[in-house]
Amino acid sequence: MVERTERRRIEDGDRAPNGREWELFVRSDGSDPMRHVGSVRAADAEGAYELATRLFAWHAEDVWVCPSAAVTRYTTHDLAEDAPTVEPSTDSEEPRNREWS
């Protein structure tokens, strides 16, 4: 168990200046975890999948796409100083275990 980490919530919303942004996950083998490999810009899920396969088909067995706007992000990285901080709980520790690392 370790101390709870202070994170900020990143502003929600779509991340494409034009169109829609889709977070992209792939894995090269059924036994691997899905890996986040960035995002693609497309009008809909089918378009995002089509673009993703053109970029990753040589590598990926499985491809998932998810609307960027549907992801709520909490991060320790503080590009936006004025982003609201999510106060860590003071009465508990974060259930991560770093003893193994």
Partner: peptide, 23 residues
Amino acid sequence: DCLGNVHPTQFWRTYSLGNVRDR
């Protein structure tokens, strides 16, 4: 780009490696 997406070049707008608001 203007929303923080990192692209392999300025012309490759349809693919982003990540976002500087996250990392």
